[in-house]
Design a protein around this nucleic acid. Structure first.
Lengths: 234, 234
DNA sequence: CGTGTGATTGACGCCTGTCAACGTCTGTGG
DNA sequence: CCACAGACGTTGACAGGCGTCAATCACACG
């Protein structure tokens, strides 16, 4: 069950300066399940549902997870996408409450499940780790507050432009510079907080104006400058 | 500079089960400035501005503080109101970043300013306190996510109804059951994320329908059931 | 009494949500 | 191999919610 310190790639990865686990001692690191093989989850798998009790958090090694809430009439509101090195579900664990979001795999994912007691032990006993968790939560909170301001004040066009920029900044591009992440029009709408038809019309408009290129679900951003202007980002 | 343990009211208050400071040792408690007199700030005072660096957090003893972000065209978006026993500004301290919100006194307030190093020391060295801080942040994050869902999916009418219920649940009523908190129509609009005129028209509508009563800025909720239905809360 | 801030009301029009119809693609089962 | 179902994407028509502008009123304050 020990982590193979000779597997330098993975060990270095877990202890690298940007890693959430950078401040763990070797002993603490070995208390976590990273010595085993990761779990594999196919596209479409639900990791947990809003309202359920979860007994630990997930560390994403590969793939993309959609985090969303279900609003009125069952309409989903996408809160964020988790990507490799992110952790999900830790909030419910730490506040010891039912999950307030659902998590669905949208790109095949390998991930590790870490039991709640491990996390709580680390938070209580390793002040630096605890600070990192707090910083992470604060960052998410700040982003949430910004998004509240945007969604309350900006038009749908501005928000869609902003989301496209956000996706470009946060997800890899393929060899032809198309966004790797595969989203349906409905999912885009559920991020922006609008109707599917509105997203379709605005994407067509952006395409017509030479700002983006579309190949089915694949999106390539051609004119980031115009898009930034459209998004009213200063 | 010691806290007067004979002042049982304040001492018991700080160590009561709901207090953020419940897990502090007497020694830790005395390292905080609660032994001094609180600072007094009049309505209208800005405690800190978005983008500024703050060197500590505030613990509110009395009064109400408006926490808001400034969006496009300088329009403010109210994130929340802080009331007695709340702390504000701690996120920027913990993540060591510039303030991402502004804080303005809207009801005369007494509060204590606690230097950043005190907070960081406690988080790193007192696991239970650290867990409480994390829980607090997680709670705020969950509320922010809920609000994102609401604002993205609900109509202005639904949101206003919801905000009124929220105010009723979170702020005291005076002897005639009017909401204690004094908000301009513009501030209400800046919470809901709409135009001032829309708030005015909807409030008149609610009043006409016998759901609320208005006396200037004072609001009394007459029919919480109808209001809940209007808010589409399930 | 003048000034300024906030509240109110009306008019107007655009953005955007909804409904409906149709096209496209993929996978499945006969 | 084809037919069909079902999910997703697209387009058009339409109405109404809500933002914006402007005028007026109410009230407090120096």
């Amino acid at each position: 069950m020990k982590i193979d310190h000779n597997d330098t790639s993975f060990y270095n990865f877990l202890t690298s300066p940007n890693s959430l686990f950078r401040h763990l001692t070797d002993e603490e690191l070995e208390s976590l399940p990273f010595g085993r093989a990761p779990e594999f989850h196919k596209r479409g798998t639900i990791l947990y549902n809003e309202g359920s009790r979860i007994s630990g958090f997930y560390w994403i090694q590969s793939g993309i997870i959609k985090i969303y809430k279900t609003g009125v009439d069952g309409k989903e509101q996408i809160i964020r996408f988790a990507k490799p090195c992110d952790i999900i579900g830790f909030r419910s664990v730490l506040s010891n409450e039912l999950a307030c979001t659902s998590a669905k795999v949208i790109e095949d994912s390998k991930n590790y499940f870490v039991p709640a007691e491990n996390l709580i032990f680390l938070v209580k006993n390793n002040g630096n780790f605890s600070m990192d968790i707090i910083r992470l939560t604060c960052k998410e909170l700040e982003e949430a507050n910004s998004y509240i301001t945007d969604i309350a004040q900006k038009t749908v066009r501005e928000r869609l432009a902003e989301i496209l920029i956000h996706l470009k900044n946060n997800f890899d591009l393929d060899k032809e510079n198309f966004l790797q992440i595969n989203l349906t029009r409905e999912e885009l709408a559920n991020m922006v907080g609008t109707a599917t038809e509105s997203v379709i019309r605005l994407l067509s408009e952006f395409k017509h104006d030479g700002i983006i290129e579309l190949h089915g679900r694949k999106i390539k951003i051609l004119d980031i400058k115009s898009l930034t202007r459209l998004a009213s980002i200063f």
